[in-house]
Every structure is written in structure tokens, then in C-alpha cells.
Amino acid sequence: MIGLSHYLVLSGLVFSVGLVGVLRRRNLLMLFFATEIMLNAANIAFAAVSYYYNDLTGQMFAFFIIAVAASEVAVGLGLLIVLYKKFGTLNLDDLASMKG
């Protein structure tokens, strides 16, 4: 029988995959992909809690997370395009302008 813990553990594993991506990648676009993965992990957890506690609030929060993710992608990709026009690269090591 699949319980709430199964879904929460799955959500934690998916979140860790996204976290490894955020820690490991140096390309800004890949960092965006990793944040999408982490947001989706939160969505799984919300939907699972909503189902097992028989409450629609979790699904509502998942909807708002999807809206936030969509606007984040719109603004973020605009910023990435501006960065790429200015520097010609999306590599974080090349974009470092301050030495410290």
C-alpha cells in the first residue's frame, strides 16, 4: 500500500537531485532547470498531503507554486538573454566581475 511517507520520500529524493544540480552546475540555464526540479518536488509533497489528509489546501498551494514558477521562468529567461547579449556567455565563472 502506498502511503503518505512514500510520496514524501520521493519528494525528498527529487529535491535532493535538484539540489545536487544547483550545487554542481556552473551554467545559469542549468541552474534554472535545477530550480524547476526543486519546485516540482515541493508540488509532489503538497499534492500528496492534500490527498492523504483529504484537504484541498495543498492543491491550492501547488497551483500558486506553478504560477510563481511560470513567472520566474519568464523574468529569468529575459535576464539570461540580456546577460548573454552583454557578455556572450552564461558560465558563472566567466561572469564573475568582482574579485575577492
Binding site: 492534500s50 497551483f63 521562468v73 519568464a74 529567461l77
Partner: peptide, 26 residues
């Protein structure tokens, strides 16, 4: 997973917004 959890509308929104819109934007 959302369809398994009986959150049908959330699953459809996930398909349309994430797989459709966000991926098209990328």
C-alpha cells in the same frame, strides 16, 4: 503522480503549464 493522487486538475495544469508553456519558453 498528480493523477494517481486524484488531483486531476493539478495534473492537467502541470501538463499545460510546465510541459507546454515553460518548456516552450525554454
Amino acid at each position: 503522480f498528480f493523477f494517481l493522487l486524484e488531483a486531476d486538475f493539478l495534473g492537467v495544469v502541470q501538463l499545460i503549464v510546465y510541459v507546454g508553456a515553460v518548456m516552450a519558453l525554454y
